[in-house]
Structure formats: C-alpha cells, structure tokens
Amino acid sequence: MIEAWIREFARLVVAEAPRLTELDSAIGDADHGSNLSRGLTAVVAALDEGSFDDDAALLKKVGMVLVSTVGGASGPLYGTFFLRAAGALPGGVPSAFRAGVDGVAARGKSTTGEKTMLDALVPAVEALEAGKDWGEVLAAAEAGRDATVPLVARKGRASYLGERSAGHVDPGAASAALLVAAAASTLG
C-alpha cells in the first residue's frame, strides 16, 4: 500500500509536471515540475531495483533519493517529509503524516499562511487526525491549495515578488495536493 502510494504520487507528478512548472513560472523560477519529476523518476527506479525490509525502510529510501536528486527547496522539504514519516510509520499512517509535515515546517522554518506546501499539507493532516475519510482529507488538501491563491508569499522564491505573488496557486501546495491525492487513492 505504501509502495502503491509512492508510485501513484510519482505517476501524478510526472503527468502534472508541466502544470507545476507553469505555476512556478508565474511566481517562482519555472522548475518545480521538472525538479519533482526528476526526483520521483529516480524514486521509481529505486523502488524497481531495491527490496525493502519494511515500509519504513521504503519511505526512508524515498526520502534519501529525493534529497539527493531534487535539489532546490522542494528536495530537502519532500525529502525530510519522507525521512520523518519513515521514522513515525510504526505509529500508523496519520502519525507518519504528522511527523512528515512537522519535518517540513522545521526544515523550512515555515508555518501555514505563508503560501507554501504547508497550506495543503497541514489541513490534510488535521483532517486525518480528526478521523476524516480520505475523500475529506483530499478535499482539505485541495481547499488548502486553492486558499493559497490570495495569499502573499512569505517563504520560498515567491516571497521576492511581494504583493505580486497574490493571485496565483503556490506550486508546492499543488504538488502537495497530489501527494494527498495519491494517498487517498491508494491508502484509502
């Protein structure tokens, strides 16, 4: 199930890469889609090759591959997400998700409302912890993603645009919604 989640995330990211880069063109540097699809293509190759003792080992590998292939802001952030999630996985998916999200906030020194991936991730993990079903969790992530539109970015490259960052979806929030969508269709 965990492996299916990652593979589905990879599929979605590769399919949506042009759109993610398009979003990053508006308020960033036009690479979010190619960054993530490079990383997740490497992840899929690692899954194809390797065999893992358990799902935690698999998630750890995912995190390490992302850290060492993505670069930019999203590499350390998604990498940290999976490395932390791996550590907490024995406690169940919701606590793995929570650990991952907290890891992103710590690594990025960021919080919600700053127009980042956290704006999709935090509502999703809160819904999960509240025992909502995956459909609702996904809806929360997507609502969080869409709610980034009016925000003025305070973290990441979009922050350099100041007021001009408002009016656009944050690319990282869009990719984070894909992460949740993949979970909804594989872990649900």
Binding site: D29, D31, S34, N35, V70, G71, A73, G75
Partner: peptide
C-alpha cells in the same frame, strides 16, 4: 552545479 536554477543536492 545544480540543475538550472535549482540548488545542488547535499551529495
């Protein structure tokens, strides 16, 4: 040297 406009990775 990272990818174009993308910081290099820790390795």
């Amino acid at each position: 040297a990272g990818e174009v406009f993308t910081s290099p990775v820790p390795d």
